[in-house]
Computed example of a mutant assay.
Amino acid sequence: MSASYATHQPERAEIDAAPGVLVLDFGTDWCGYCRAAAPVIGQAIAAHPDARHVKVEDGPGRPLGRSFRVKLWPTVVVLKDGHEVARVVRPADAGAVGEALAMAAA
């Protein structure tokens, strides 16, 4: 089983200042779509060991998800040096997340 979504929200300024490739995975532990996508997301990230993966619990009143305009779960936002490079909403396979990570690595 993959790690739980963190209830502690990093500050947006901390995310914007993060060096390298950062993968923000927005969702909740009780979301069926999130549970189904977790192995797919994990598989894609495992192929990119330089990427840092942060699972962030999202929902009403959660400012980080709102700042990224997250509407559906899971939403995977890939950043490089604090700038959004790609996003994948409800990934069905590792290829979509892998392509997003490849964009950040380029």
Rank of each mutant, 00 (worst) to 15 (best):
M1F: 11
S2T: 11
A3Q: 13
S4H: 12
S4I: 09
S4L: 14
S4N: 13
A6F: 10
T7K: 15
T7R: 15
H8P: 02
H8F: 14
E11R: 14
A13F: 01
A13V: 04
E14M: 06
I15F: 12
D16W: 01
D16H: 05
A17S: 14
A18L: 02
A18K: 08
A18R: 08
P19R: 12
P19D: 15
P19A: 14
G20Y: 00
G20M: 00
V21D: 01
L22F: 04
L22I: 02
V23T: 06
V23M: 08
L24H: 02
L24F: 05
F26D: 01
G27D: 00
G27H: 01
G27Q: 01
T28I: 07
T28N: 06
T28S: 14
D29Y: 04
D29G: 09
D29C: 04
D29M: 06
D29W: 08
W30M: 07
W30T: 15
W30C: 02
C31Y: 03
G32N: 10
C34H: 10
C34Y: 05
A36M: 14
A37H: 00
V40M: 04
V40F: 03
I41V: 15
I41N: 06
G42F: 00
A44V: 13
A44P: 11
I45R: 05
H48W: 04
P49W: 01
R52Y: 11
H53Y: 08
V54I: 15
K55I: 12
K55V: 13
K55Q: 13
V56R: 01
V56K: 02
D58Q: 13
P60C: 05
G61K: 02
R62Y: 09
R62C: 07
P63H: 06
P63I: 04
L64T: 04
G65M: 14
R66E: 15
S67K: 02
R69K: 14
K71V: 15
K71H: 12
L72W: 15
L72I: 14
L72C: 11
W73T: 03
W73C: 01
W73I: 05
W73D: 00
W73V: 04
P74A: 09
P74C: 09
T75S: 07
V76Q: 01
L79M: 04
L79N: 05
L79T: 05
K80C: 11
K80E: 10
D81A: 11
G82T: 06
H83R: 15
H83L: 12
H83F: 04
E84W: 05
E84P: 12
V85N: 00
V85S: 02
A86C: 01
A86D: 13
A86P: 05
R87M: 06
R87N: 12
V88N: 00
V88M: 06
V89R: 00
V89P: 00
R90E: 15
R90Q: 15
P91D: 08
A92F: 11
A92C: 03
A92H: 11
D93E: 14
A94S: 15
G95Y: 02
A96M: 08
A96I: 09
V97L: 00
G98E: 05
G98L: 05
E99Q: 13
L101H: 11
A102D: 13
A102G: 13
M103V: 08
A104E: 00
A105W: 07
